[in-house]
Each structure stands twice: as structure tokens, then as C-alpha cells.
């Protein structure tokens, strides 16, 4: 191969390599994500399990944060036991929108009998309810109960998906400090203030 041919081949290879690089970079550019915006949602409920979240009628799993393309959106959230929520908003690129959904229960779940309560799916003995204090949209309750033997305290959580009350603590006369980790802050504070906790344990 003459020197001229070698030089020609080298130049041709260089040109091909240059074209390849340009083609690849253009291809990558066309695949690049456009600038997105962020949508944060606060649901205002203890658990998002079982909720259906839709942006412009497209279902997405319930999350606290979504990265979405700029657009006008209608957000709808539905779930058993909750009133349907919907709102419309515009999302621009690099913008963050916080949606304060604050889901509302369809019914106010009063506790009138301990027969409404279950623990591990089992019913509990009949006790007379003397007082009920509700928290968090009436999804948590501290019950004072009694029978002929003694008084008992019960902490229960309402599960909107099954529309049932589940016992989280009790029945008992008092509880350990560590057991309060099972209940949310306001209930924990109420239990401590009312001396339902064994501080020495």
C-alpha cells in the first residue's frame, strides 16, 4: 500500500469516526429527558395502601413525590373509606407543586361498643365503654372501659379500607413507654399526660 493510499484510508476512517460520534450524540440528545417538574402530595392519612392515584386519568402507584413533564394536570385520588379527591393545576418545568390532599373519611367512625373492636382479626370480650377520646380525624381512639372486675384502657386505630377498628394497645391498666412507639405522637402525648404509661418500666 502506497503512502498516499494509507493517508487516504486514515482520513476516511477519521471522517467515519467523526460521523459516528456526531450520530451517537444526536441520538442521545433526542432521547434526553425534557426538564420536568415535581409534584409532592400530602395525603393526610396514616397509610396510602389501597389508594388509586391518577394524573390525567393515568393510574400511578401512591407516592409522596412524582417527577412529571410540564402540563396541565387533573389529579384524582380515590380509596375505600375516603371521599374522592380531585384538583387541577399547571406544572411548569423545574417547578414544585405541593398538593395538600388531606383526604376525608366518608363516615365518622364512632365507637359505641367493644364488639366493634378486633385484635388480630378476633373480637374482644364485651366491656362497658365509659369514655372515648378521638384523634386524627377520628381514626385513632383511646377508650376507657370497665367490667365488674376493673377498668381497662384500649387504644384502637380505624382502618378505612376495611372500615373496622383494630386494637393497637390493651386492654390494660397501663402501658410501657416502649409500647407507645406503636401509636402516633398525639395519642402518645395524651397517654403520657393522663398517666396511662408506666414511666418506671
Amino acid at each position: 500500500m502506497t503512502y498516499r493510499r494509507k493517508l487516504f484510508l486514515l482520513i476516511a476512517l477519521l471522517i467515519l469516526a467523526f460521523i459516528a460520534i456526531i450520530t451517537i450524540s444526536l441520538a442521545k440528545g433526542s432521547q434526553a429527558q425534557p426538564s420536568k417538574g415535581t409534584v409532592q402530595i400530602t395525603y393526610g392519612i396514616p397509610s396510602t395502601t389501597g389508594l388509586t392515584v391518577k394524573f390525567n386519568n393515568h393510574s400511578m402507584s401512591p407516592k409522596s413525590m412524582y417527577s412529571l413533564s410540564p402540563n396541565k394536570y387533573t389529579l384524582s385520588i380515590t380509596g375505600t373509606g375516603y371521599k374522592p379527591f380531585a384538583t387541577t393545576f399547571f406544572l411548569s418545568k423545574n417547578q414544585t407543586i405541593l398538593i395538600n390532599a388531606a383526604l376525608q373519611l366518608t363516615t365518622i367512625p364512632n365507637i359505641t361498643s367493644t364488639q366493634q373492636l378486633t385484635v388480630y382479626g378476633e373480637s374482644v370480650p364485651q366491656l362497658t365503654i365509659t369514655d372515648v377520646t378521638y384523634f386524627y380525624q377520628q381514626t385513632w381512639a383511646v377508650l376507657m372501659t370497665e367490667n365488674t372486675v376493673a377498668q381497662y384502657i384500649i387504644v384502637a386505630q380505624y382502618l378505612p379500607s376495611s372500615q373496622s377498628w383494630n386494637i393497637v394497645l390493651g386492654p390494660g391498666s397501663s402501658f410501657t413507654q416502649s409500647s407507645l412507639s406503636k401509636v402516633p405522637p398525639l395519642v402518645s402525648s395524651y397517654m403520657t399526660t393522663n398517666n396511662y404509661v408506666d414511666l418506671g418500666v
Binding site: 407543586i97 405541593l98 388531606a102
Partner: peptide, 15 residues
């Protein structure tokens, strides 16, 4: 800092 008209849709102005 959030800007809102109805408390539901809140636009974040600064973090």
C-alpha cells in the same frame, strides 16, 4: 415558602 389560593394546590417558591 409556598404560594396558594386555596390551600390545596401550593406552589413552592423557595426551598
Amino acid at each position: 415558602i409556598l404560594k396558594t389560593t386555596n390551600g390545596i394546590v401550593n406552589q413552592q417558591l423557595f426551598s
